[in-house]
Design a protein around this nucleic acid. Structure first.
Lengths: 307, 307
DNA sequence: ACTGGTTTTTATCTTAATAAAAAAACCACA
DNA sequence: TGTGGTTTTTTTATTAAGATAAAAACCAGT
């Protein structure tokens, strides 16, 4: 019934870290970068808690974790302060532990994409395969469900939606985005948020200027997803945002292992930049047209080129 | 913190019925109608189980339930046979018990739309409010999450997405559908399934012919949702289908209590029929244009007029 | 009126044993 | 080979109590 050689090895790390703390440590770093904090900036526990919509307890724990990684340090007189600048933060962020939930989530997603999991699975199968506590599995399944990647079968077991793990799915996804994204830009409610827009514009100028060749894979994918997400958010229509968010999430599985061709990435960034400049000039119609072209080209492009 | 006067009354029925059986009894009736079975048709347990993707055990239980409602009757020599024709089935279907899960699901959704539930709720709040077993609540929350109506907050509690329960949401939903539905019809993969299409066409002809004035509220909403769902399905793009499915689900909350104006319903059915006739003539481009117009009119129409 | 530190309260997670239900296998019969 | 009936196996649901972690309230110091 199941090939034991394919079974994923037990991973003791899957049990070790408090998921909320791990998640918050990542979010805190993203926050520090976003707010442009520099070495020595004082960090107010209450303010951080407020910004991330949690109470001070988990913030304190996450700061403790960051202290262990020397991202923050105790401040004389109490509290913490930042101990790094943004470039260092970006580097450290990748070495931070992932929550056990995230590990299992990515594992299951990739196993499914690689065909090591059938379309129909039972919880008991998964528990045997991954050897994790049942509660953790339940949480991950819930997460997959919330993202539309999995659904409960009638009776017993779970079904992966055919949204994931098949070739046609990718084509369909592009067709949808080619419709939604230009429509978002043309939407009556389209309204760029100045700071967010400028940050994205500046980043793309640097990338086109050559930074693209030095930026790690993982970061390029994030920037790319962020560009498309931002434009969808600017539409002011929650559904547009939500759809793009979901498709960005799915691309994590299919593209995280893909090869990126540097010259293609440069061209892609240039196209992004062209679109951003039209938006800055408030020619939304032309920006939308460029987006249609951008997505049209990409979908026919080589495997592994994300837009 | 919470106004006890607003608290929903305990409903003992919420605990009584096996959810899968209840769900299957509805699905069986839908199946009988869809397949055009008539009084006396023999029912094969294995065949039904196969068609609904479950094993024979729950099918047997559901048939027992249907026997109690005299929908089916024992056949001499063993097994069951259908004891009603389609019109009677449709009438009975509405009187069948709903699963406790569905009851709670609708209750929570409506309470949220009506503002009796805050955007942020904790499980403990909900357990106190509805007095249901924790496991049932968990299942319903999972369902709401899978439909994108609810999400887990960081730390404790749950957040209703602002997709539901606010005025703008409705506007956004129409904007999205005005983009997706015509695009589905124009999609290169658009391909009507003959039987399904003909059934829908015939139904609309009857409605326009006057049946609309005799059809109950609940059935009209279903026909309406089914029309839009069908066209999205014909696109062959899963994402289009999935998006329309989600929006139809949300409309259950906002529209199930709405007043339907008969003359407006007639006009709506006529518009549907026009679209269907263009599709039959294979002028998909014009059908898509009519759909744009149809959705454009509806969104400006009176409250409670669903499309 | 802030801050970080601390305590108290509350909510959720974990757990494991048991019960319930679905799936699968088996049967005899047409 | 198909049927319904029955039994066996496997999976999942249900609990309740205790452990854990988040939220909230409360400090004292600046």
């Amino acid at each position: 019934m199941e090939n034991p050689a394919l079974s994923t090895q037990k991973d003791e790390n899957l049990r070790s870290i408090n998921p909320l703390q791990a998640e918050l440590s990542h979010q805190l770093i993203a926050l520090f970068i976003r707010e442009g904090l520099t070495t020595g900036s004082a960090l107010s526990e209450r303010e951080l808690a407020e910004k991330l919509s949690v109470s001070r307890s988990p913030i304190r724990a996450a700061l403790k974790l960051l202290e262990h990684f020397q991202v923050v340090e105790p401040r004389p007189g109490g509290g913490m302060r930042l101990a790094m600048d943004s470039p260092a933060l970006m580097r450290v962020e990748m070495t931070l532990p992932e929550s056990p939930q995230d590990q299992l989530y990515v594992q299951i997603g990739q196993d499914r994409v690689q065909g090591q999991l059938e379309e129909h699975v039972t919880e008991a199968d998964l528990l045997r395969r991954y050897d994790v506590p049942k509660a953790l599995l339940t949480k991950v399944l819930t997460q997959l469900v919330s993202e539309g990647l999995l659904q409960k079968a009638q009776g017993k077991g779970w079904l992966f939606t055919r949204l994931i793990g098949c070739v046609e799915s990718n084509k369909d996804s592009y067709e949808l985005r080619r419709i939604i994204e230009p429509a978002a830009i043309r939407s009556a409610g389209f309204q760029p948020e100045p700071e967010r827009f400028q940050a994205c514009l500046a980043m793309h100028k640097q990338l086109v200027d050559g930074l693209v060749f030095e930026t790690p894979h993982h970061a390029l994918l994030n920037i790319n997803a962020g560009f498309h997400q931002m434009l969808a958010d600017f539409s002011g229509n929650r559904y547009f945002s939500e759809i793009i968010r979901q498709h960005n999430r799915m691309r994590r599985f299919t593209e995280s292992g893909a090869v990126l061709y540097p010259e293609r990435m440069l061209q892609s960034c240039q196209e992004h930049l062209d679109i951003l400049e039209q938006i800055e000039a408030r020619d939304f119609e032309w920006a939308a047209t460029l987006m249609e072209r951008h997505l049209g080209i990409s979908s026919k492009g080589q495997l592994g080129v994300p837009e």
